[in-house]
Design a binder for these strands. Structure first.
Length: 681
DNA sequence: CACTAAGTGTTTTTT
DNA sequence: ACACTTAGTG
């Protein structure tokens, strides 16, 4: 039977695994074996006779869900592991909605709008709604609407403010388009469960044991969803739901996007009388690193007191370096990594450089390149953000459904085919007036009547092109991949893409992305042969809830030193960590002072510190190039909070004048000799 | 309608 | 510094 071993766990972990009934709050500090506990707990539940399909584990990212799934599959019978639901909040909501969204007046095959689609739609609505002298940035509107939805507010009726009116209109239009945005997935699922007790009962009976990972990152809607799924609608008072949440309030760094630390801080208010278990034994870092982290986080008010400890004593002191400027900071780190790889037998992958802002990676990248040190930058722009990838997906969406206005508008004049902004504007406006799609409007005789001969011809050609391929795509035995390829070919998209690139290399890269998408589509078709999910629809859905692919590609990315933001580093660990830019104004960021979120910045630094396993080096610069010009900086006030007992301060001169250890010098010389021996004739 | 020049606003990121 | 948007010209 189950081959997992409870005795591999420490007493607290074991307690967390064995507590299966009733609400449970697991406060899992950084590096305390959180994922192990979650998976072990699922395995234990199954061993106790709970059906695998009665267990639901929710995470935030697909990556986390996949990791958990793999981990579980290696612990228990893979067939059973597969039956456990492990998914993100959004994927779970999608499943709930796919079954019963008709109750909310949407059609079952609703589309999911991503960031770009959403902004596009909002732009359209704003131009239509705003008076001549009114202005509203689509980004601002988007943020407002997202915040509103995550607070559980629905669109206001009879709202007078522009942003309110845009919100109402946006929501109405999404519904006509039979589309939902990411926030709607949560909002509508909660609405569905709230308003339809029979639906809710079905899900509460399906899942009898819930687990939520990274609970400190949940927002209001997510908490409500968990509450709704945890209890049957007519549960008698005093029924204790089996909800186990895992999280660490000290690692709550997503308040700015709606996460409510109060969800974990006031867990008892939402799920009365829970078991509370603290995991404080850290298996990752040295005592020096943990003590430094502890001393920092102690300064936060509003937290559940925790103190990480490690069974292994000591470790190198945490270094704090003062540098003249950011260029020298980068140069020093690059040189030191080079030396440590040569002298200490460390690998490039053992090092990570952590920073507050993506912009900081530039100078570091430069220096690493200079020394030919391999590196990879995590985050930044995603594959899916690339213009050509979005264009490709828009073309594909139009083929599936020409009534998809957002996609149609994206590619209607890409490449330029004589359908300019004014013409598009008129068509959109008319389509809203008539309540039809833009595509339908382009075929409306009345509308076409008003166009000049040139415009008329451009529109006809475009509609013809689209319809011809759409028809072929719908044929039952169509080779969908071929149809899509020929469609893209006929639009002359690739040629246009190449033309607008400055360098040939850039063109090759961009074209490569389009071909990559094409390949994915073909793979997807092959995989889903005979499946109920229609080829193109299935593919587009897949691309939307897409990070799996992205994570896969990302993992395989070339090896080397990792460059990563503090936010993106959460959940990861590295033997050697350099944390750069510890300056007042950067960390804590100036803006956090205005917004009163300095505590969150402190947690951010705490997260950064606790990523390090063996050595940690913090650095700050007297001068930093900011927005072009150089600006003088002060050491971050956080540094003064760190326990001096585990720290050594250094500045450049002290480092440069330090004698090179003889061993190190010899190792370096040997490496040089080996290198020379290996040079081919 | 397409292209170029001046102007703007600069955290963090997932689904 | 720089990427991205907006205004103005051919």
């Amino acid at each position: 039977m189950a081959s997992f071993r409870l005795f591999d766990l420490n007493p607290e972990q074991e307690q967390a695994v064995r507590t299966t009934e009733g609400p449970l709050l697991i406060l899992a500090g950084a590096g305390t074996g959180k994922t192990r506990v979650i998976t072990a707990r699922v395995a234990y539940l199954i061993a106790q006779g709970v059906g695998p399909d009665e267990i639901l584990a929710v995470t935030f990212t697909n990556k986390a869900a996949n990791e958990m799934r793999e981990r579980l599959a290696s612990m228990i019978d893979p067939d059973q592991a597969r039956r456990v639901t492990m998914s993100t909040f959004h994927a779970l909501c999608m499943r709930i909605l796919r079954q019963d969204i008709e109750r909310l007046g949407y059609k079952k095959n609703f589309a999911i709008y991503d960031e770009g689609d959403t902004t596009g739609l909002l732009k359209k609505i704003i131009t239509r709604t705003a008076a001549k002298d009114e202005k509203l940035d689509p980004g601002v509107a988007k943020a407002f609407i997202s915040k509103a939805k995550n607070n559980g507010w629905s669109a206001p009726e009879g709202e007078e403010s522009l942003v309110g009116a845009v919100f109402a209109r946006y929501q109405a239009e999404l519904k006509t388009l039979n589309a939902v945005d990411f926030d709607d997935l949560l909002l509508l699922a909660v609405k569905l469960l709230n308003e339809h007790p029979d639906v809710r009962t079905r899900w509460t009976r399906r899942y009898r044991y819930l687990m939520v990972d990274e609970f400190q990152d949940t927002n209001r809607l997510q908490l409500e969803l968990v509450s709704l799924l945890a209890r049957e609608p007519d549960a008698p008072a005093g029924t204790k739901p089996n909800v186990a949440v895992v999280g660490d309030d000290d690692q709550s760094i997503y308040g700015w996007r709606g996460a409510e630390v109060s969800n974990i801080l006031e867990f008892e208010a939402h799920f009365p009388d829970p078991a509370v278990i603290k995991l404080e034994q850290n298996y990752r870092s040295t005592t020096a690193i943990l003590s430094t982290a502890n001393s920092l986080i102690r300064n936060n008010p509003r937290r559940r007191p925790k103190k990480l400890w490690s069974a292994t004593e000591g470790g190198n002191k945490v270094r704090i370096l003062q540098m003249p400027d950011d260029r020298q900071e980068a140069e020093f780190i690059a040189q030191e990594i080079d030396q440590r790889v040569a002298n200490e037998g460390a690998k490039h992958e053992d090092f990570a450089i952590l920073y507050r802002m993506n912009a900081q990676s530039r100078s570091i990248e430069q220096q690493l390149r200079e020394l030919r040190i391999p590196y990879r930058v995590v985050g930044g722009k995603s594959f899916f953000d690339a213009r050509e990838v979005k264009d490709f997906l828009a073309y594909a969406s139009c083929l599936l459904d020409p009534g998809d206005d957002v996609s149609l508008l994206r590619i209607i004049n890409t490449p330029a085919r004589g359908i300019g902004a004014t013409l598009v504007e008129r068509a959109t406006e008319a389509s809203i007036r008539k309540g039809c799609s833009v595509h339908a409007m382009l075929q409306d005789p009345e509308f076409l009547e008003e166009l000049g001969p040139r415009a008329r011809q451009s529109v006809d050609a475009f509609v013809g092109l689209l319809d011809r391929h759409e028809t072929r795509m719908c044929e039952p035995l169509a080779d969908q991949a071929a149809v899509l390829r020929e469609f893209i070919e006929e639009t002359g998209y690739l040629a246009d893409l190449a033309r607008t690139c400055k360098t040939p290399e850039e063109a090759v890269k961009r074209e490569g992305k389009v071909r990559e998408m094409m390949r994915w589509f073909e793979e997807n078709l092959a995989r889903e042969k005979g499946g109920e999910k229609g080829g193109l629809r299935g593919f587009l859905d897949d691309m939307l809830l897409r990070q799996e692919k992205e994570a896969e590609e990302g993992e395989e990315q070339q090896r080397g030193v990792t460059l990563i933001t503090l936010h993106a580093a959460k959940g990861l660990e590295y033997p050697h960590v350099y944390l750069v830019g510890l300056e007042e104004g950067l960390l804590p960021h100036d803006r956090s002072k205005l917004e009163g979120t300095v505590d969150e910045e402190r947690r951010l630094l705490y997260v950064g510190i606790t990523r390090a396993r063996k050595t940690l080096c913090l650095s700050w610069c007297r001068n930093r190039v900011k927005y072009g010009g150089a600006s003088p900086s002060m050491m971050s006030s956080f540094v003064k909070e760190l326990d001096p007992a585990w720290i050594e301060h250094r500045n450049v001169d002290e480092i440069l004048n330090a004698p090179v250890a003889q061993e190190a010098a010899k190792a370096r010389f040997d490496r040089l000799l080996a290198f020379l021996d290996n040079i081919p004739e």
